[in-house]
């Protein structure tokens, strides 16, 4: 499903001072896999995830999703592909404060040319699934960090994506809530068969995946 070849990414830190975040990465991820990528801070995990999603342009190499080179597409086509086939769970609070919980979940559907009604119903179903149906009219600031992350997961699934990308989804949560969130990812994977790529620095989460990739200094370590 995902094919990365020769991926490198460097950032300019001041004049003529490039920092290599990724160095020549080759990686294939098959449909239906639950890949957990681990590594210390600065290992390049988030950068790799952003490159898979087309959120950052690699300095070198190619990114293909279902055989389509992401960077041969226009911005509009790439955005549409992201909207239709990918769901995101970010490390930071990413719900829009001005929208209600239900509006946040339905946002990717309303950004697509999907009808409003379908998106709203799907959002209610997903909120039911993550156990927050009764909070659909609340605003994000009225929810706990764990509840917010469950809403983000519901939002990531609203367009029935083929690929779910999660960047440190439990880093700000206590152990119990972290386990709840990870169990939810496991359930989503087993029930929907969606491909999941989850990035974390917590090695104990490797057990939730079907494949583990360790990263160090911008390279795949094993």
């Amino acid at each position: 499903m995902i094919c990365l070849r020769g991926i490198a990414k460097s950032y300019e830190m001041g004049r003529d001072w490039p920092i290599a975040a990724l160095r020549s990465i080759d990686l294939d991820i098959e449909r239906g896999e639950f890949v957990v990528i681990t590594g210390r801070s600065g290992a390049g995990k988030t950068t790799l995830l952003n490159i898979i999603a087309g959120l950052a342009r690699p300095t070198a190499g190619s990114v293909k999703v279902d055989g389509v080179d992401l960077w041969s597409l226009s911005d509009r086509q790439r955005s549409l592909l992201r909207n239709r086939t990918m769901g995101f769970v970010f490390q930071f609070p990413s719900l829009l404060a001005s929208l209600s919980v239900a509006q946040n979940v339905a946002l990717p559907a309303s950004l697509a040319s999907d009808v409003d009604g379908g998106g709203r119903e799907r959002a209610y179903e997903l909120l039911e699934m993550v156990g927050l149906a009764d909070r659909r009219f609340s605003h994000p600031r009225q929810l706990s960090a764990g509840q917010q992350q469950r809403v983000v997961i519901a939002r990531a699934l609203v367009n029935r994506p083929e690929l779910l990308l999660a960047d440190e989804p439990s880093s700000d949560l206590d152990e119990e809530t972290e386990a709840e969130i990870m169990t939810l990812f496991g359930r989503i994977h087993s029930e929907t068969g969606v491909t999941i790529v989850l990035v974390t620095h917590a090695k104990q989460l490797v057990a939730y995946g079907t494949r583990h990739i360790a990263m160090a200094d911008g390279e795949v370590a094993d």
Binding site: A53, R76, S79, L111, A112
Partner: peptide, 16 residues
């Protein structure tokens, strides 16, 4: 910026 970045990630194009 972050909110707009999230919108882009969710599928809003640069023009939108």
């Amino acid at each position: 910026r972050r909110e707009l970045g999230v919108l882009r990630a969710l599928g809003a194009s640069c023009g939108a």
